[in-house]
Amino acid sequence: MTHLITAAQLAHEIEEVVVLDVRWALTTANTPAGREDYDAGHVPGAFFVDLDRELAAPAGEGGRHPLPDPAVVEALLRRAGITEHSRVVVYDAKESYAAARAWWVLRWVGVSDVRVLDGGYAAWVSAGLPISTEEPLDRHGDIVVRAGQLPTLDATAAAALARDGVLLDARAVERYAGETEPIDPVPGHVPGAVNSPTTEWVTADGTFRRDLAEHWAQVRAGREGPVGVYCGSGVTAAHHVLALAELGVDAVLYPGSWSEWIRDPRRPVATGRTPG
């Protein structure tokens, strides 16, 4: 089963699904990122989702984007009228980085039928489909979430997986290598982790590349064992989990990611462009 949906498919099913707009940018994390874009135009009937406030808890010991309070996610789902049996489509501006976080969080709390609009809002607009500036009314749903429906890694499990399996670091190679670190106070990577930049899993138009299997084979390079993924704060790593799910690979997210790993100075840090 694919976890993706095209703009044309969404247009055909628009009356049968709940649509969530998760446009977001890391550089505007202290404001309702994406809200202005949503107000300017969105897929008709879509509900706006604030990633920083509804798909993550406040920054702290768990990193910059810890897993959200289930009650907050429940309130979001109820606002959109989502039940555990609803068919849900999520999208962001283009590359599906933020949408993948929504896809993961909703499945984590028990919503099983969630798909991502491949190519995001850009694909919808490019297809010449209608847009709206009207915000739907609160649907007052009554869903009860069940957090923990997907497995996660903590720092200890991530370290073990880097030794005994395949732990992917989804950040840009310069950050992985410790050559630059524009966000977190400590540069480098989890020792043994394999760099796999998120940007390399999508094409120029923001859609997932069609040769995902071949790309995965190159990234994995013959390594065996279970697969886990982390990034800076657990957002773009979910994009890897989504891409691998398309291939039938059950990758596990390390939600705290690098921003949580470095909070304990006893944890080792590696630098350089090889797993180390």
Rank of each mutant, 00 (worst) to 15 (best):
116 V>Q: 06
145 V>G: 01
94 K>P: 07
35 R>P: 05
165 G>S: 13
9 Q>R: 10
210 R>Y: 14
134 E>Q: 13
41 G>M: 11
201 W>V: 13
115 R>N: 03
177 A>R: 06
181 E>C: 01
3 H>T: 08
216 W>Y: 07
148 G>S: 06
232 G>D: 06
121 Y>L: 15
108 W>S: 02
261 W>N: 03
40 A>I: 14
179 E>Y: 06
131 I>L: 13
85 H>R: 15
276 G>R: 14
161 L>F: 04
111 V>I: 15
147 A>F: 10
196 S>N: 12
33 A>V: 07
10 L>G: 05
51 L>T: 03
26 L>N: 00
261 W>G: 01
156 T>P: 03
214 E>S: 14
265 P>C: 05
188 G>R: 04
223 R>E: 05
2 T>P: 05
136 P>N: 01
85 H>T: 15
250 D>Y: 00
212 L>W: 03
221 A>M: 09
161 L>T: 06
58 P>C: 10
67 L>K: 08
136 P>K: 01
133 T>C: 06
273 R>D: 00
125 V>F: 08
229 V>P: 02
109 V>H: 06
119 G>M: 07
120 G>Q: 05
50 D>C: 09
217 A>E: 15
42 H>Q: 07
209 R>H: 03
96 S>T: 15
15 E>N: 15
241 V>N: 00
246 E>R: 00
251 A>P: 04
263 R>S: 04
174 E>D: 12
119 G>T: 04
154 D>K: 09
152 T>Y: 10
267 R>D: 00
226 P>K: 11
114 V>R: 03
228 G>H: 01
25 A>C: 13
246 E>S: 08
157 A>M: 14
4 L>I: 06
19 V>F: 01
213 A>M: 10
121 Y>S: 11
62 G>P: 04
271 T>A: 07
99 A>L: 11
224 E>N: 15
183 I>Q: 08
186 V>C: 01
234 G>R: 05
160 A>T: 14
17 V>I: 09
